[in-house]
């Protein structure tokens, strides 16, 4: 045995320790860079948007260009608000949820009940792929199906369908994961009592997994609520409050886009973005709270 080889290996441990510490320094530095955008964005939205947040902002529709120009010229805050956008967003998201939630939960339970089967795996894979389809493509689809095919014009319904297709895979997978986490014994106990299958699902599984399902639903809503591109292709926007699902409708993100394209309305860009982000983050926090309590 060539013992010299071992004895002769030079001691470089100081240098190696130093390298290791340097690397940690780089990791910390890059991690700080990673989180700086969210802090900068929050700061920018709050500092520029807060002054425009007032009751009018929630209850009045957007000003027209003339009103906005006058206000800008006089150095006043912009009149009006985003009531047309808020109502449109609520309408479309509610409709999308109404379409997506029941279907997704049933499909999620199907996947859970058919673990390991070929056909279920196919459905699961397609669901995963659907989750990755860009939202603008779903806008195109909904345009072809609903705008061209059903409402013969831009409509809230078309927007809702695009959003609903976005929500489907999210709720399906979260339903399946929730069901998987329920102890099998719950199901077996019910089955042993002779409870019929559909009642086990409705009365045992869904209530037991309620908070898990709720989390998935809220997260999926928070994912679609800020979507702009698919709505540009389907609902177009509207300057008035519209609650007719067959008519063009505004939405908060659509309004942000309009304000952005109109130099006089720039102040409203910040307040609407602040509102939208606040809404999304609130939904996220509620969802996290529910899932924490559940675990």
């Amino acid at each position: 045995m060539d013992n010299n080889a071992i004895i002769n290996t030079t001691d470089n441990s100081n240098w190696r320790e130093l390298k290791s510490k340097l690397f940690l320094g780089i990791v910390i530095l890059l991690s700080c860079i990673t989180i700086s955008p969210i802090l900068l964005i929050l700061y920018e939205l709050i500092s520029k948007g807060i002054k425009q947040i007032n009751p009018d902002f929630f209850f009045k529709v957007a000003p027209d260009t003339l009103q906005a120009m006058t206000a800008v010229r006089n150095g006043e805050i912009l009149p009006g608000g985003i009531a047309n956008g808020i109502s449109g967003t609520l309408l479309m998201v509610a409709l999308a949820a109404l379409i997506a939630i029941p279907v997704s939960i049933v499909i999620g339970i199907f996947l859970y009940e058919n673990q390991g089967k070929k056909y279920a795996n196919l459905i699961r894979t397609l669901t995963d792929i659907l989750q990755g389809v860009p939202s603008v493509v779903l806008g195109l689809i909904s345009y072809i199906w609903i705008v061209q095919g059903v409402t013969k014009g831009f409509s809230a319904l078309a927007g809702s369908v695009a959003l609903a297709i976005m929500m489907l895979p999210l709720i399906i997978r979260s339903t399946e994961e929730t069901m998987k986490m329920l102890p099998i014994s719950i199901k077996e106990a019910a089955a042993a009592l002779g409870v019929p299958y559909h009642k086990i699902i409705l009365k045992v599984m869904i209530p037991s997994g309620f908070s898990g399902l709720m989390t998935g639903i809220l997260l999926s809503i928070s994912r679609v609520i800020g979507e702009t591109a698919p709505l540009m292709l389907t609902t177009l926007g509207s300057t008035a409050i519209n609650l007719n699902i067959k008519k063009p409708t505004s939405a908060v993100p659509l309004q942000i886009w309009e304000f952005y394209n109109n130099p006089n309305m720039i102040d409203l860009v910040w307040s609407s973005s602040l509102f939208l982000l606040g809404f999304v983050l609130t939904l996220n926090i509620i969802a996290k709270r529910i899932s924490l309590r559940y675990n």
Binding site: I41, L45, G226, E227, I256, S273, L276, L277, V280
Partner: peptide, 10 residues
């Protein structure tokens, strides 16, 4: 959670 359009603005 930040919407795409907000990233665009920023």
């Amino acid at each position: 959670g930040v919407p795409s359009i907000v990233y665009g603005l920023w």
